[in-house]
Amino acid sequence: MAETLRFHYEVDGNNFTSAGAASVEVKRKLRQLGFDAETIRRVSIAMYEGEINMVVHARGGSADVYVDKDCITIILADRGPGIPDISLAMQEGYSTAPDNIRALGFGAGMGLPNMKRYTDEMKIETVLGKGTTVTIKVYTNGANKL
């Protein structure tokens, strides 16, 4: 059985300019590994939304990416404030992002809904005052170099 590839990224909570760098890097790696364009697009966009959420709402965090032949799993973990009401947060258009963040084009309240839509599985674990871990999974068609 093929080995799982694992990539780890620290996501800087103070840098909006570099936000998304880990997702762009994962996209490049998945392309090298021969995944199809649609899988790459779904994975990297979902990861980007998670990465941005950690920067905007949680002062940064970490992303662990596990790549298998049949499945790509991403665990986004932060030590931010947590999410008080997950079903509210999942609603399209719901956002607590401040005005300065909205001025950059973020804070549309579509990040978590996009993550849900672009992935096959999504799990949010959150503890108020302690942090949030979002796990997303995309199943692949198995046609890749792994």
């Binding site: 966009i45 980007y48 084009g105 973020f106 549309a108 309240g109 579509m110 990040g111 809904p113 839509r117």
Partner: peptide, 8 residues
Amino acid sequence: DLLSWVMG
């Protein structure tokens, strides 16, 4: 202009 809309 809303980046998440563009992503979606």
